[in-house]
Amino acid sequence: MDMSRKTRIKDMRYEDFNDNEYLEKYVEELRRGGTNVVVAKINDIINWGRSNSVWPLTFATSCCGIEFMSMSAARYDFARFGWEVYRNSPRQADILMVFGTVVHKMAPVLKRLYDQMAEPKYVMAIGACAIGGGPFKSSYHVVMGVDKIIPVDVFVPGCPPRPDAILYGMMQLERKIKVQNFFKLPQQPEVKEEVPDIAKESYNHEREVNQ
């Protein structure tokens, strides 16, 4: 099917988006091997539903989170796109939106939340900090970009990005979802959740802290 019709979102035209080459290349890759016509139709219907009800898991650590609040409030109102059901449990969320700086102490938490999300899942890195450390590039405690820890689908630059920019990023993700083949989603590596062995890890304070 014609890409521009397939990836249509409201009255945004195909040419209004940047990075269309990425999407075209992506589609080409996905199409390799061909698809059954019936399956393709069902696929389109499923993707139509999926892309219009993306439920975000909020992971707002700092300043960018305020712009997320603005986005969810009346003026920018992301409910127009069907994304307003933000979930506070990773098990119910489709997309992990990382707003703000991720630091060493937070990194395992982020990784764990991502692992707990159900497939298919997506990640958006929003703001300079989440993309690559941002203004804290020279800090000793900041993770220089969440893509060091988890795979990222969409990056939204800015410090902080305007709510419009975040909406645009969300639309890009929506387009990506629309062209995917639901029955052959890209495989994610399997994760085993480790349960720490408290007895083994239990601190020997005298040694550890006094060093």
């Binding site: 395992p108 764990r112 304070h205």
Partner: peptide, 18 residues
Amino acid sequence: INPIPDRNELFIDMDALP
């Protein structure tokens, strides 16, 4: 020296407090 940890650390208060 201080790499990014890949898992949560146990809290010291789970055991005792200095």
